[in-house]
Each structure stands twice: as C-alpha cells, then as structure tokens.
Design a protein around this nucleic acid. Structure first.
Lengths: 343, 343
DNA sequence: CTGAAAGCGCTTACAG
DNA sequence: CTGAAAGCGCTTACAG
C-alpha cells in the first residue's frame, strides 16, 4: 500500500475525511473522543501529513529560501545557522541555495525556489547582481524577500546587514589611538560593497592623522584566496606599515601566518586588525582585534523582517543596520609605535 | 490578479491547458509553432511553473533534505556545499536542517522534511541518535536516505564517510617515522564514532613503538570549545609529549595558539598533526600536517547514492569509505626528537 | 457534531 | 496535432 492519506485514516476511524482534516488542525468543534479515535488511526497507519496537498488549497508552503554565496565563510555560516534557527522556531523549513557568488547560478537557484513556491526569500546577493536582475527574479514574481549582509545599489527593498562603515570607523579610531601612522588594507574582493564601506569608515576613523592607505590590495576571488602572495605584494609595494587591516578574520589568519613565515611577528612588528570577530579570533595567537558584525543578530532580524513581509505587513524598504562593536585584543594592543617617531 | 496558472496561459495562447502542460515538458508531439505561441504567452503573463501542483499528480518533489549538526564546522560546511552543488546539478533543490547535534531537534527537522515530501534525506546523525530513532523517522515512513560522515551503530543503511581509522593510521605511521615516542590526543567530543575511529587507527599506526596515548582529553561540547583549558589540562597531566594529535584542524589551530601563548612553538617544540586538511591548514604557520577526509567527495558520493536509492535501484546498505590522504607539512616536519634519545 | 462536494494547479491516458 | 475529463491529497464553506 502507498502512503496513507486522510481518506485511509477516515476509513480506519469511521469518520469522513473532513473530520480528519479538522482533527489535524485541532479544531475545537470536534469532541475529544472523536479526536482520539482519529489520532489512533493515524498512528496505526503511520500517517504523515502532506503539507504540499494542503498548500494547493491556498495554504502557505511554510518554506523560506536562503541564497548565500557559500557557507564556508564563517560569517555566512553563522548567518545561515541563525536564519535556520529562526525559521525553525517559527515553524518554517529552510531551502538553501549556494550561488558560489555567480549571478547565473543565483538566478537558477532563485527560479527553482519560486517554482517550489517558497513563502519568501532571504538573499545575500552575488557580487555583480544588478537591480534589473532582482526585479526579474524577485519583485516581478511577487516573492517577498529581504536582502542580507550585502545591498545592491539601485535596488530598493528590505535590507538587514552589519554597519560596515561604522565597523571601519571603530577600527580606524582604535588604530589612531595606538599611534599607527601608516595603514595597509588587505583582502576582500575588489568592488564589493562591504569592502568599500569598511575602507570608507576606516579612512574616516584615521582622518585625524592618516589621509590615505599605504596599500589597498584586494583579492581576485574569495575562494582559495592566496593570502601569502597578497602579503608579498604588500611588502613589495613599500615599507612595512604600522598596521595591517584585513578584510575579515579568515583573511587575517592567513595574513598572520604569511607574516610570521617572513619573520614578521603580527602584534609585535605590525598591528593587525580585521572584521567579523568570529570565535576563532579570540583563540588565535595573538588574540585578533576585530570588529564584530553580529551575524546571528543579522540573521535573526532578517528572518523576522521577512516573516512580517510575508504576512503583508510590509513597509517594503526597511533598512536595518546592526551596530558593530570592536573587540580589542593582543594583535593591536601588543604593538607600539617605533621609538624613532616622536611620542 | 493572482499568480497565473496554465489555464491563464492556455487562454492567452488559445490552446487547452493540456497543451500547455505538454509544452512545459517540451513534448515532441507539439509543433514548434504552437510551442512558440505558448511560450510567448508564458512570458507575457509572467508565468512561473508550480512544481507543487505537479507533484500532486505523482511527480516527485525534486527536493532533497540535508540534516547536519551545524554548518560552522568547516568540514560540515564543505560537505554541505558539495551536496548542494551535486543536488543542484541534478535538478534538485536542497532543504537544510541543523540539528545542533540535538536528537530532539533532529527529529523535528526530519518530520518537517517528511511533511514537505522531500524525495530523500542525507543525514549526518546527531551524536546520540539511536537506531530506533532512525527507524521511526526514516525507515518506517519509507524515506530514502543515506547517512553521511557518521554512522549509527546498530542501524543498517547506506553510508558514506571518510575512512577515519585509515586516517588515524596514516597519522600514526607518520609520527612513528619522524621518531615521536609520546603522543597526546586532544579535542573531539567524547564517544563520537569518528573520534574513536581516529584514535584506534592512530594507535595501530604507532603500535611499533608506542602502545598507549600519553593523554586523551576530549571536549564536553564542540561549539565554543575551550581549547586553551584543554591544553592546560594536557600540560598538567604530565610532560610535554613529542607529538600532539588534534581531533580536527579547527581544534589544532586553537591548540597551536594556546601552545604559543605558553611559549611552546608548535612544529619546533612539539609536533602537531590533525584531521580534515581544510584549506586553512595550508595557510597556517607552520603548515599543519593533516589527514584529508575529502568532504567534497563524501558529499558527492552520498548524493549520488541517495539519487540511486530514490530511483529504487537501492541495495540499501552500501557502505562507502572515502580513502584519506596525509598532507605532510611543517608542523610535524620541523620537529625532531630531542638529542637525549638515541638516534 | 459530521458529511458531501467543490476546488487548488497540474498531468495523463484517452478520444478525436 | 489538440481537447475534455479524471484525479493527486488536502481544506473549506455549506448542509444537515
């Protein structure tokens, strides 16, 4: 026999399928005795509710879609876990798509989600996503959605992300405070919005003493990033800066190792700071000074906003920025300006 | 107007809905001229295929479920990406559930997936999953499934994972070869099957000279693991071993930092090896010797096996172990036995 | 308190 | 080459 349906359950319990349906919804109009009989029939038959069939009668799918570039980046991983947790807590199931930061792949994934009638979509847009793109994939099909962690310039929609400029500002202020006079920014993918925001904030924070970066070297790709050659290029470009700011903690770890391999001890010979403050930043030696972007909060808020939008209570272009916080550790605290420069 | 259906498309194109359905499937019995007309109607109306409705007529959902403990562990992240990629390549969409290594949560997630009628499930079982558990959640409802990365003793099913014992053996042989005479194993969650397999293999590999571990200290929980206190406990337990073997690379990084913070240079003062060989292991200073578990291959094979099981071509208890490989780097190569011991 | 019936958006024989 | 009709497993008015 095939999977049992409410009809089978109804037959077993000697009621109509309508009654079974009402029992499933725990309707108050069914007396407990009948409910019990129906429930016994369900377990006897091993009945599993078919939400897909229910959906056909206008019910929602209770599925949310999440599209991220990848899940290897610990920041994205944390975000994904937070979103899965928030969705689960609200009775939603999560469909995951990885764009691998590729717009074509992203479009395929979004289309697949639309065909499966997800109730809404959380999108961390691939790097070169265009507004027209999102209009065609999300706005026109009428899919409720919120953009996460990265905005798409020129596209108005709900958005939740870290305040990258504020993060940069915190890092800049701190470096100013410890006396850094030359700063290089390493890592991140060229042209990405968070990267630009972080640099803009950083320069604002440093403005009192430093007016430009000693070096600004982006990566070609994020995956399999070659931090070692990045450090080579930075060292070839000029003198060792007082401080290196990495695009994120993962890049910072690679940079720290590359420096150490060249006999430059991070924290002592050069200050090192970065962004994200993933748990590993605290475990690293020296402890890595990092601006926390609170991915769990971003994911939580983004999910809440999406659920509101699905309910129809949608302003539609809310922009939520999560306040950053700077975790100061040995990688900048252990450094002090060279003696040659005046106090 | 609501979402357009094939009926709307049919009206627009002056054909019946049956014809539209055939065009969707690109049936050869429909002439190109009609197909074109229908397709034009689709784009004009912004029609989006409703796979859920199709499913009601006996078609499959083209959805696979993946349940993992978390996605923060880089090994799991890599696995997840590989599975998402393989699923996508075969036209499947992936539903992701995180059990947070909690059996109750895992059961909820599996139930939600069953209600959504996924075609099959890939499960990385939570630590204390029982065979009865899986029987009730997977076998009885007739859900095709394959277990990934961790087996459940006493439960027969398709399984794909790294060969942890062989990995341990490789590490053990290598440590023997560089002359290590005392070895401590640090990290991993007490009682986990991969942990036990790794230790068993390690001891086999060392058997020629070493017959027991100097220390074997597991973690209470994986999340937010306190590697620093782990190292303290290891150092308190006795003399510095020749080699430390970490449960995985993430733990090894934490251990390396903790050692360095205590003025013990990993690679020079103590050999350090571990498991997984995540990309960061190569970037670390010193390069981390690590046994590669090839999560991408595990994910790929597991997905293939599941798709076969879904097609019904299922032996049902295939056990696939992916061959490991030892990547030897500075963290063990730079170490040499203390001069006091004879050559 | 419970049942008969219509309908969600598709697919699939079956006619023509 | 194309259409009418039945049916997938539910839910929801509407009767009784």
């Amino acid at each position: 026999m095939n999977r049992p349906t409410i009809k089978d359950v109804a037959a077993q319990a000697n009621v109509s399928s309508a009654t079974v349906s009402l029992v499933l919804r725990d309707s108050p109009q069914i007396p407990d005795s009948t409910k019990q009989r129906v429930r016994d029939a369900m377990t006897a038959l091993g009945y599993v509710y078919n939400r897909r069939a229910a959906e056909m009668r206008g019910m929602s799918s209770q599925i949310l879609g999440l599209v991220v570039a990848n899940v290897r980046n610990p920041y994205f991983a944390e975000l994904t876990m937070a979103i899965e947790g928030a969705a689960h807590a609200s009775g939603y199931t999560l469909v995951l798509g990885c764009s691998t930061d590729d717009v074509a792949r992203q479009n395929e994934v979004l289309r697949a989600m639309a065909e499966r009638r997800v109730d809404g979509i959380l999108l961390l847009p691939a790097s070169h996503t265009s507004p027209e793109n999102l209009k065609a994939s999300l706005r026109d099909p009428g899919l409720p959605h919120v953009l996460v962690a990265r905005g798409v310039p020129g596209y108005r929609s709900d958005y939740v992300g870290a305040d990258n400029e504020a993060s940069g500002l915190l890092v800049g202020h701190h470096l100013l405070q410890i006396g850094a006079e030359s700063v290089a920014f390493l890592g991140g993918v060229q042209g990405s919005v968070p990267r630009e925001d972080r640099i803009r904030g950083l320069l604002k924070g440093l403005a009192q003493r430093v007016d430009s970066l000693l070096a600004d070297i982006p990566l070609e790709y994020d995956a399999g990033a070659d931090l070692s050659s990045l450090v080579d290029r930075a060292l070839a470009a000029g003198p060792l800066p007082d401080a290196v700011v990495a695009y994120n903690d993962m890049h910072a770890f690679g940079i720290a190792s590359a420096l150490r391999a060249r006999n430059i001890e991070p924290g002592r010979d050069v200050a090192l700071a970065s962004f994200d403050n993933i748990p590993e930043a605290a475990q690293h030696y020296p402890g890595l000074t990092s601006a926390d972007g609170f991915p769990a909060r971003v994911g939580q808020r983004a999910t809440e906003l999406l659920l509101q939008a699905i309910k129809g209570a949608c302003p539609g272009h809310e922009r939520v920025l999560i306040d950053p916080d700077l975790e100061v550790r040995g990688s900048t605290l252990a450094w002090s300006p060279p003696a040659t420069s005046p106090a």
